[in-house]
Every structure is written in C-alpha cells, then in structure tokens.
Simulated scan of single mutants.
Amino acid sequence: MSERPLDLDAVKAFVSVAELGSFTRAAEAMQTTQAAISLKLKRLEDRVGLRLVERTPRYVALSANGVTFLERARELLDAHDRALGAFVGARQRLSLGVSDHVAGPELPALIARMNAQDPELLIEVRIASSGDLLQSFDRRELDAVIVRLHAGRGDGELLAEETLGWFAAPHWQHRADEPLPIATLAEPCGVRVLAGRLLDAAAVPWREVFVGGGVPSVAAAVTAGLGVAALAPRMLPFGAVDVGARLGLPEIPRLPVLLHTRVRDGRAYDALAALSAAFRSVVRG
C-alpha cells in the first residue's frame, strides 16, 4: 500500500455506519446524504485494500476485517479529538433534557457514545416530563430537549413516531367488576393525560393504583402485577404483555418524538445530530 494518509471523514463515516447499522442513519448523524456515506466508505475500503462492510438489501454488517478495523478506527478518531482538544481551551457545554417516556434503557449507552465521540464536550442531562422540560427550554435553562409532542406546540424537529400499548404482567388478570387499575407517572405527564382521555372516551372505568416518579418505577409496578400501564415496548420489563386487545382497550395513537434545540453549529450540534440518529434507530427498531 502507498503511504497516503487515511481520510478522517471516511473513517468517521465507517464508525457511524458500524455503530448505527445503517447508511441512512449514519448520513443523518453526519448531516449528509446516503450517497456521500457510501462514497466515503468505498474510498476507505480502496485505501486499506479490504472490504469492511457487507451490504445486502436488508441489512448492513461488518466483515471480519471491518470488526478488526473498527477498534483501530475509534482509536484514531479519539487521538485526533485529543490533539485538537489540547488547543481548544475550555470545554463546550451541552445541557440536554430528555422526557421520561423517551429516555429508555438504552439512554446511558447513547450518552456514552456521545461522550466517546467528543470527550471535550461537557454533557449535562436532565430527565423530567415533556411539559417541564419545554418550560425549562423556553426559559433558556436547557440548550435542547427531546420530548413527546406537547399540546399547543407546533415547533420542533420530528425524530420518530413511536407505538405505545397497554401492558401488564403475563399472569395478571383484570377483575371485571372493578375499574381498570392503572400504573402511571405523576402530573404533568402527557402520556398519563392521553391514556385517561382515551379510556374515558371509550367508557372504560379506571383508577390509578400506582403513581411513580419515573418510567422504571411504573414498569416495576407492572412487573409486580399491580395493573396496566401505557408504555412503549422498548420500556417494558421482561415478560410484560400487551393486554389491550384482550380487554377491549382503545388503541393508543403513535406519538411523535421531537427535538427542540437552539444549538446550530459546533461540537454540541454534531453530538445532537449523532444522538438524534441513534434515537431514530432505537425507536424504529
């Protein structure tokens, strides 16, 4: 091979494809087109003389050489960021709010990916209801928020639309002579309000038997067999089942996940773009 250096943008495109499992999502994360990502990857493969990614119409997977190269590619990008960071001075800061009903179990891994992508970016995360986060965003206490669609708000960038269902423990049974027991978050949770309105419109008697301080606590109540909760499938405890059809409960419409941000450039913008692409990947499955 010649001594021609590697193109760092091409290396970054390869790592993004490997982590997101998709040329389309990698393009979203890098604010470019799928064709541009494909071209960068082809040039990288030509440069190293190896096939790094196996492409089929249905999936993208790393080749054996790609798996080996991935670790080295990450090390190269980390070294590059450290070299630049030594001359930048103060770390940039990104204050990010994420809604309870959006911040699933994968959130720590997504934030860790952001940290790994840019160690010089200081990320602060707040988890709360969509309504509370939007108020903080409007007061300029947060740089960006990822929330459910909120009544009266027409702004924000659509990241994905997510399906919710009525979930309960696998052996839980509803007593027909009693109101439907509901586990939910406290006000001002938008999903709580929506679930109540749907049940009322369908003339389904219900009562709150558990009000939790976060989605994990609501999921724990489901596991304990206390009742039913309106949740996204990715939030579920192991073994929970959708009982909506069996109980004749109203269908929950797909709920948009939106990004509200004042960040328009720089490291924080790149990190948000990567996180947005990752959220799309998680929500769409």
Rank of each mutant, 00 (worst) to 15 (best):
H171K: 13
L158F: 03
S129M: 11
G104M: 10
E124F: 13
R140M: 05
D132C: 14
R140K: 12
A169I: 00
A176W: 08
G196A: 12
E106M: 09
L134G: 01
A160N: 01
D118A: 14
G196Q: 15
M114C: 05
A116W: 02
P105G: 09
G156M: 06
L133C: 02
D143I: 00
G131F: 10
N115I: 15
A151L: 08
L134Y: 03
E162S: 12
D118F: 08
V191F: 04
V147E: 06
H171N: 07
G104P: 01
G154N: 13
G152M: 01
G165F: 05
E161M: 06
W166S: 08
D132G: 12
H171A: 08
L159W: 00
G104D: 11
E141C: 10
Q135H: 11
E178W: 08
G131P: 11
L180S: 05
A168V: 00
E124S: 14
H174M: 08
Q135N: 15
R126M: 12
L121T: 00
D143S: 03
F137R: 05
A160H: 01
R140V: 03
H150E: 14
A169T: 04
A186V: 13
E120W: 14
D155R: 06
A186L: 13
S136Y: 15
L142G: 00
A160P: 01
L180K: 07
L164C: 02
V125Y: 01
L121Y: 03
A103R: 05
E124C: 12
S130W: 02
L134V: 00
L158M: 04
L185G: 11
F167W: 06
L185I: 12
Q173A: 12
P119L: 03
H150F: 15
E124G: 13
A116E: 08
R192L: 10
E187A: 15
R139L: 09
Q173T: 09
Q117E: 15
L122P: 09
L149T: 15
N115C: 15
V145D: 04
P181Q: 05
G154S: 14
I123S: 10
H174S: 13
A168S: 02
E178S: 15
R192V: 05
E187H: 12
A109N: 06
T163Y: 11
R113E: 10
A168N: 07
L159S: 01
I123P: 08
P170S: 04
R175G: 13
D143C: 04
D138I: 02
Q173C: 06
P170A: 04
Q173R: 13
A195Y: 06
R192F: 06
W172S: 00
I127R: 08
G165E: 05
G154P: 06
H174W: 09
G165P: 07
